[in-house]
Design a protein around this nucleic acid. Structure first.
Length: 498
RNA sequence: CGGGGUGUAGCUCAGUCUGGUAGAGCACUCGCUUUGGGAGCGAGGUGCCGGGGGUUCGAAUCCUCUCACCCCGACCA
């Protein structure tokens, strides 16, 4: 890895020449996976727990998830879906009902087999009473929600029925990674139920659109919308739709999926209704989910060698205020900073006024590493002049400007909008420059074989059936990410993925 | 689940080959001087050397088992 493989503006490059020390070591170019872990720690988002594959999400990381819940949750309700909650434990017999489904999930299920602990001979505790039927800790809830729907759906007048739950799920992962693939993770899973095949398919596509809109408008992550190939489909689905994003190492991340389940689960769960024709029919269902993995994507799309960069709409804080005090002006500066905090809060912004007893420079670096969109410094000069000095995280110190306090409060919304657009544009340009159209599998071989190139290949979807594609897939550990809607299924996007 | 690597202070790591009283930088605590992109000087605290078992007079170091983390695969809505 000799050339810089990551996005750097000329400005950032000159900066790094001046200041080779980055807040995060190693840098993206040096060791991307280690950089990713370091960003999470530096921003105090999460850490590993005593339980393998299960992470502790710390307040700063969880605040991001809460904003995702607020925004995405609102969008889900806006399309007529209601929230509910279903059990964590699923009877083994439910999971076993659908053959293809259990084939897909069997290897990653955690199973609860006992319900009581007793003192063992060594004084330790041992599970004592076996359950008559083991439970599976939900890896997803199609089966148990299907069971409920079979009771709730009687007539075509009950349809559509649209449910969503925010919950944790467990999939026993062989290779866990913070946020990206943890054994326990948080998500929302939606389960909708319809009268006709057309209604179901239209819904699966609509919910994918909700995800795409959310990712682009709230997280500033550009996505490719498309359909998974049959091999990549959700077990039991007749079609799986996906939104794929490109990380700064050129790998793909599936940021949300939506499944047209046809009648697979209504058949196994017996979701029947009396139709307009008086006859009995199987319902058509969909399911769709987005998880805390998205937070990993957020990091890998936007963060830089100084740490996180938060898209303003889901940033835990829009602004951090850093008082720069001297011995003789501390009271005045702190009072000014707190007044500014109140003004900004009154204007609807999320603000952190950092009055801790610490050096201003340390507070600034913390703000940078946490990716707070706008950092405000107020000291004696600002107090005297009634101004604030503001810096945008994505642009760095070069963007430092001093504004009249009231003008700043009035302009902050616009600054945050601009930053959102800039993050999106930067990520989109990065991605678009790294999607390469190829005509043949030899060209695909040449692309993935070239160390200096990384990203996605786009090619004729018919090439997926060529036996040589299977060889290349194995050789480079790449997979078809999707058949983009934009090409009406004629093209396939190929890449490495998380 | 296969292959490889790493576990030593809050963090990054040296020390392990060749066994002999536990180390550095940063961070932390106190004091003074400082304060607009990671301050300076002085003083101070910090460890079941991942865990169990062994070899040895003596183990961070050697042997063995185990756990965790990281990487490459396999697997994976």
């Amino acid at each position: 890895m000799t050339e810089p493989r990551f996005y750097m503006s000329a400005q950032q490059q000159s900066q790094s020449a001046k200041k080779p020390q980055t807040a995060i070591t190693p840098t993206r170019a040096e060791d991307f996976p280690a950089w990713y872990q370091a960003v999470i720690r530096a921003a105090d988002m999460a850490e590993n727990s005593p339980v393998r594959g299960c992470m502790i999400i710390k307040p700063y990381g969880f605040a991001i998830w809460e904003h995702i819940q607020d925004i995405l949750g609102g969008m889900i309700k806006d399309v007529g879906v209601e929230n509910a909650y279903f059990p964590l434990l699923i009877p083994l017999s439910f999971i076993a009902k659908e053959a293809e489904h259990i084939d897909g999930f069997a290897t990653e299920c955690a199973v609860v087999t006992h319900h009581r602990l007793e003192k063992g001979p060594d004084g330790g505790l041992i599970p004592a009473s076996p359950l008559s039927e083991p439970f599976v800790i939900r890896p997803t809830s199609e089966t148990i929600i299907g069971e409920a729907l079979s009771n709730w759906v009687r007539s075509y007048r009950d349809l559509p029925m649209k449910l969503n739950q925010w919950c944790n799920v467990m999939r026993w992962e062989m290779r866990p990674r913070m946020f990206l693939r943890t054994s326990e993770f948080l998500w929302q899973e939606g389960h909708n139920c319809f009268e006709t095949a057309e209604d179901g398919n239209e819904d699966a596509r609509k919910m994918l659109d909700v995800y795409a809109t959310f990712l682009e408008d709230a997280l500033a992550i550009p996505v490719i919308r498309g359909e998974k190939t049959p091999e990549e489909r959700f077990p039991g689905a007749i079609a799986t739709y996906t939104v794929e994003a490109m990380m700064q190492d050129g790998k793909a991340l599936q940021a949300g999926t939506s499944h047209d389940l046809g009648q697979t689960f209504s058949r196994s769960a017996n979701i029947r209704f009396q139709g307009r024709d008086g006859g009995e029919h199987l319902a058509w269902t969909t399911s769709w989910g987005m998880s805390t993995r998205t937070i990993g994507g957020l990091i890998m799309v936007h963060a830089d060698d100084d740490g996180l960069i938060m898209p303003p709409k889901i940033a835990p804080y829009h602004v951090s205020i850093i008082p720069v005090v001297k011995a003789d002006n501390e009271d005045r500066v702190v009072a000014y900073a707190k007044a500014l905090e109140q003004d900004l809060k009154a204007a609807g912004f999320r603000v952190k006024c950092d009055v801790r007893d610490d050096r201003p420079s340390n507070k600034m670096w913390e703000s940078i590493k946490k990716g707070v969109p706008v950092r405000v410094e107020v000291g004696g000069n600002e107090v005297d002049q009634g101004t604030v000095t503001a810096v945008r995280r994505d642009l760095g110190r070069e963007s430092k400007q001093t504004l009249d306090k009231s003008a700043f409060v009035a302009q902050l919304g616009g600054m945050l909008d601009d930053m959102h657009k800039a993050l999106y544009a930067r990520a989109k340009a990065f991605r678009d420059e790294r999607i390469f159209d190829v005509e043949t599998l030899d060209e695909m071989d040449a692309f993935f074989g070239d160390e200096s190139k990384f990203g996605f290949v786009r090619m004729d979807a018919a090439l997926l059936a060529d036996p040589k594609f299977a060889e290349l897939k194995k050789k480079y550990a790449v997979t078809p990410r999707c058949l983009p809607f934009a090409d009406n299924g004629a093209k396939a996007i190929i890449g490495k993925s998380y």
